[in-house]
Design a protein around this nucleic acid. Structure first.
Length: 695
DNA sequence: GAGCACTGC
């Protein structure tokens, strides 16, 4: 017992908790043997939501929309769909849907519910996520899916006619897809009064949610024989089952939260009983620094022995990430230093203490410059509560906030800004257009995006010839782009590749651009990584280099050994294969025949230009440090040192994306000929006087 | 010669 789980040995068992979070357990599965149905039934009845069963069913029956506020551990996610099923909402071939923001949650909840119902997953209970449809159209009654998938389903069935009840879970997270979905569901309700919505949220934002779904228009008809539900939403609160978490604030604010976090961890270790510690910092830099400081402390000071210090962020290699789920050996204490990933996406077992820096990295979009920035910003009160809650899952815990109570009350916003208001909207706009919603600014949003952001999105789509002069989808380009589930600029690149005869290569590039990075992130062995990169690098730039990597991967027989030797992330490559396969299917459906350009990199780069012409840059000849300026907008930008064109500095380049730190760095860069710009987008470049493209 | 919070289709 009390052994670390080692990568390569049997993996920890993945189980789900009642709220769709995921816990990784290493103990052998024993719960399902011997007891069976009766025990499960008893477990179900012990959940807080159980005593509201009748009330929930009554409210859903009588109200078009029911808002359920439930804390963690209430059991709402797994139980409510079952109650609805038991009450007959899935009779007559109808389906009960429950959406989640994350794939992992969908899978976990679905398999839990299937187990509780004693059925095989994929029959009465099923789930759909990208790349995976485990439902049976003849038998599935309860279906779990990501909200993104439900949005996609609306393209084929705008009124979502097969669903009797749609439960939107985790609505408080206010992800882009959740917000779009809620706006569209409200529209659907007007056409389908028999449809029932359940909005489930962890926080008491229920009021604004409720007024959003409040339809003023009273339906006609006599009250007695009116079959239609009430239009005012019902609100129901369900208590959670978490343990009490004692909150500690700083008495005086600190300037260095990193140092404060480290000393707080050490004093918890010195003074508090055993139990693991979870520290929330902002990013890889912070986390690596804190890990190093703590590790040194353990080396230098014997009283700090028995500490296991582990970083946790999404960019971490898989084997290292898995370490955080190993059980803590007796007499030791695990310290996990994490990004926001531990706030919602992963549930860690055994955490008793939380240290909250009060900050996270957040994305903000500037529609004027059309640039997305990742900045360290204060979290909201809701986030702080969520973080604190991570300490109370197994027994009463403590949360140490590295800020004052006054700051929490007076300075921190209660909710945080919905993603809708801090992101680029091109994908969102195109989705709505595809559903026939033309007036984007006038759409009934839960939180309206800024007019500037909407206008910028329309402008970009217009320049890509995805929208026409009347801001309607062009045919066929616009409709085809809407069909491809990728960034519209990538979709446009794929369509152009079809005309240029290089679709085979371009869908590979598109798949690779759709994931974070295909390289292994290693800080120590940077030199080796650079050398490995050189084995694939070509003068044309990063995109063509990726083709060489892909080719090498295929030739190796998709070998993980080969990836390891070449500093390539094996899991990333598997994902590339998956996405590429999906793109191949979509291409087939919209009538693109895959064709290879047989090594003609000029047509490849022309296709890339056709999608990304707006990101064209020109080297400032008289500047020394490799400074470029964007052709449109004259933004100062530099080639990122991770690019194969770093220090090569071709005169004209096009980039896929920018990362903003002290400078704007271009990631994924390809050299182009400026004449291709006018060829690809005459409407975008022709009329600019004094533009260097002219000569 | 520098660094990418997190999702999702």
């Amino acid at each position: 017992m009390s052994q670390f789980w080692k990568p390569g040995s049997e993996r920890p068992r993945l189980i789900d908790d009642e709220e769709g979070g995921v816990i990784f357990y290493s103990s052998s599965p024993s719960t399902s043997s011997g007891f069976g149905y009766a025990t499960i039934e008893k477990q179900r009845q012990r959940l807080p939501v159980y005593k509201y069963r009748t009330a929930i069913l009554y409210l859903v029956e009588t109200h078009a929309t029911t808002i359920i506020v439930g804390e963690t551990g209430s059991g709402k996610t797994t139980q409510i769909p079952q109650y609805l099923n038991e009450a007959g909402w899935a009779e007559g071939g109808r389906i009960i849907a429950c959406t989640q923001p994350r794939r992992l949650a969908v899978q976990a909840v679905a398999s839990r519910v299937a187990e509780e119902m004693g059925v095989k997953l994929g029959e009465e209970v099923g789930y759909t996520i990208r790349f995976e449809d485990l439902t049976n159209p003849d038998t599935t009654k309860v279906k779990f899916l990501t909200d993104g998938v439900l949005l996609r389903e609306m393209m084929d069935d705008p009124l979502l006619t097969k669903y009797s009840v749609i439960m939107v879970d985790e609505a408080h997270e206010r992800s882009l897809s959740t917000d779009i979905l809620l706006g569209l569901l409200k529209k659907i309700q007007r056409r389908r009064p028999e449809l029932r919505l359940i909005i489930s949220s962890a926080t008491i934002e229920a009021k604004s949610m409720s007024s959003f779904f409040q339809t003023s228009k009273k339906r006609k008809g006599q009250t007695g024989e009116d079959l239609e539900p009430r239009t005012d939403p019902a609100i129901l609160s369900v208590e959670g089952r978490g343990f009490n978490v004692q909150i500690h604030y700083l008495e005086e604010p600190v300037s260095d939260y990193l140092q404060a976090a480290v000393s707080t961890v050490l004093s918890i270790h010195d003074q508090e009983p055993m139990g693991d510690i979870l520290v929330f910092l902002t990013g890889q830099d912070d986390i690596d620094a804190a890990v190093q400081l703590l590790t040194e402390e353990v080396h230098n000071n014997r009283k700090h022995s028995g500490l296991i210090i582990l970083p946790l962020y999404s960019g971490l290699p898989r084997a290292e990430q898995d370490l955080v789920f190993s059980p803590t050996p007796r007499g030791q204490r695990k310290i996990i230093i994490s990004t926001n990933i531990a706030e919602t996406s992963l549930t860690l077992e055994g955490i008793v203490y939380v240290v909250d820096s009060g900050f996270s990295k957040q994305r903000f979009y500037n529609p004027i410059s059309n640039i997305e920035n990742l900045v360290v910003a204060p979290i909201s009160q809701a986030s702080a509560r969520q973080r604190a809650g991570r300490a109370g899952r197994v027994r009463p815990g403590k949360c140490y906030r590295l800020y004052t109570e006054e700051y929490f009350v007076k300075e921190m916003s209660t909710q945080g800004i919905p993603e809708m208001q801090r992101t680029n909207l091109v994908s969102c706009v195109i989705q709505l257009k595809a559903l026939g919603i033309d007036n984007i600014l006038g759409f009934d949003w839960l939180a309206s995006p800024s007019p500037e952001a909407v206008i910028r999105a329309l402008e970009v789509l217009y320049s890509l010839r995805i929208l026409d002069d009347d801001a309607k989808l062009t045919s066929p380009t616009g409709f085809q782009v809407a069909e491809i589930s990728l960034d519209p600029m990538i979709s446009k690149m794929i369509l152009s590749a079809n005309l240029l005869g290089c679709s085979e290569e371009i869908i590979t590039i598109s798949a690779i651009l759709s994931i974070q990075s295909i390289w292994v992130s290693v800080r120590g062995s940077q030199k080796e990584l650079d050398e490995a990169k050189l084995r694939f690098a070509v003068a044309e730039g990063d995109h063509v280099t990726y083709l060489n990597v892909y080719k090498g991967f295929l030739e190796s027989g998709k070998s993980s050994q080969w990836c390891y030797k070449n500093f390539i992330n094996y899991h990333a490559m598997k994902k590339v294969i998956e996405i590429r396969e999906q793109l191949r299917r979509i291409a087939q459906r919209i009538g693109i025949a895959l064709k290879s350009c047989e090594g003609n990199t000029e047509v490849l780069r022309k296709a890339i230009t056709a999608g990304f012409f707006a990101n064209a840059c020109h080297l400032e000849t008289f500047s020394k440090g490799g400074m470029y300026k964007t052709v449109r907008g004259s933004q100062e930008v530099y080639i990122h040192p991770s690019s194969v064109l770093f220090r090569v500095n071709p005169k004209w380049v096009i980039f896929h994306s920018l990362v903003s730190t002290d400078r704007q760095y271009m990631r994924n860069v390809t050299a182009i000929d400026p004449s291709w710009l006018i060829e690809a987008a005459p409407h975008f470049y022709e009329h600019q006087r004094g533009n260097p493209v002219a000569y």
